[in-house]
């Protein structure tokens, strides 16, 4: 049971959250007309073994999207911030 320390709600079980996606891919600007950046955003991933920045949604809590730094080999978490406060 992964335990996530939500900045709003405190330490909670993973079952309150849903996993979102890789948080290192940035959505292209709204008016981006080229296909390439959108393809890269929607489909391509670094998929690292080890530390991974990723979005989680506290869907059964405060409904905030969070950016976690989590290790994909050990499931250890070393950082958790609100997505709206996380830097680019």
């Amino acid at each position: 049971m992964i335990r996530i320390n939500c900045p709003v709600c405190g330490l909670r079980n993973e079952t309150e959250f849903t996993y979102g996606a890789d948080a290192t891919v940035n959505r292209p600007a709204l008016d981006e007309q080229e296909t390439g950046p959108w393809l890269d955003y929607v489909f391509n991933r670094d998929n690292p073994r080890g530390w991974h920045k990723e979005y989680w949604h506290h869907v059964q809590g405060c409904r905030q999207w969070l950016v976690l730094e989590r290790n994909t080999l050990t499931h250890e978490i070393r950082g958790c911030r609100l997505a709206r406060e996380a830097g680019e």
């Binding site: 049971m1 993973e14 079952t15 996993y19 998929n47 990723e54 080999l73």
Partner: peptide, 13 residues
């Protein structure tokens, strides 16, 4: 398990 993982072991949920 819904989240990216290379751990080859499953979570309790």
């Amino acid at each position: 398990d819904m989240y990216n993982s290379y751990a080859q072991r499953g979570g309790l949920p």
